[in-house]
């Protein structure tokens, strides 16, 4: 346990001093403020854009539109930034050889994986909660609130996908070599999931649904039960990725 807290502390310190915290918190705050604002300003923005002399008529934006923007921002830019920021999570430590001394001091290799995951997850959760808080405050101020279904679960789905991404990234970094190996493999994995979803319509198990059905959940157009299943499956996948990462890392030549 000593090793875990010591290494977790080191990870968090690294995130602070290597600007990861600065980036994630400010981007989250920006997304939180920008999403409701963009939704609100959309008619005005479009009013200024004249397409072939015609003025576009846009219906008055609603409470839901703010969430549309929020989920758009987070599921695309947000995930890309998450990947970029944590791309070197383990690879960098391995490539530079900085893990050798801590391991020689008796740090368990399992602990390395778990502490790294925990630190990344803490940072992702903090940023996400910050974004939600700001977003919700702005949305309540700018729009007339209406009752929506499964708001918490919908937000949770996106968080879970972020957690899934981090676990896959960690696993990919253990398997590959080089500073960006993990990042490429994870990106490739996402590509495969995307192909499964858009071309083969493999919907029932696909974790990508966690970031594509959020608004549908709010408006009641998505099947809650199916998404709940996917959430459980994703949870299991996270666990599997971490266990695999630990098993492979244990036997890795340093």
């Amino acid at each position: 346990m000593n090793g875990f807290t010591a290494f977790l502390r080191k990870e968090l310190l690294e995130h602070v001093r290597n600007y990861k915290v600065l980036i994630l918190l400010s981007v989250s705050a920006i997304f939180g403020m920008m999403s409701p604002l963009t939704a609100k300003m959309m008619p005005d923005i479009l009013a200024n854009v004249k397409v072939e002399g015609m003025v576009l008529k846009v219906p008055e934006p609603t409470f839901i539109d703010a969430f549309v923007q929020f989920f758009n921002n987070f599921s695309q830019m947000g995930m890309a930034i998450l990947l970029l920021v944590f791309g070197g999570l383990l690879s960098q430590d391995l490539a530079k050889g900085t893990l050798i001394i801590p391991l020689s001091k008796g740090l368990s290799r399992y602990t390395v994986i778990l502490a790294k995951y925990a630190a990344a997850l803490i940072l992702w959760t903090l940023s996400y909660v910050l974004a939600i808080t700001i977003h919700y405050g702005y949305t309540l101020y700018l729009f007339k609130p209406i009752s929506v279904g499964h708001l918490f679960f919908s937000l949770f789905c996106l968080w879970l996908f972020g957690a899934f991404l981090l676990a896959v990234l960690l696993m990919a970094s253990v398997i590959t070599r080089g500073t960006y190996g993990g990042l490429f493999v994870t990106a490739a994995g996402l590509g495969i999931l995307l192909i499964c979803q858009t071309i083969f319509r493999m919907d029932t198990f696909n974790p990508l649904k966690l970031v594509s059905e959020n608004v549908a959940l709010l408006t009641g157009k998505a099947e809650f039960d199916q998404l709940l299943n996917i959430a459980w499956i994703t949870g299991a996948l996270i666990l599997a990725a971490l266990i695999l990462a630990m098993a492979v890392f244990k036997k890795k030549s340093i």
Partner: peptide, 18 residues
């Protein structure tokens, strides 16, 4: 009809963060 400038108080913190 509102104008973009009406949202200035909301835009300032975003610009500041950027």
């Amino acid at each position: 009809m509102t104008h973009i400038s009406d949202y200035l108080p909301f835009l300032i913190p975003i610009i500041a963060l950027e």
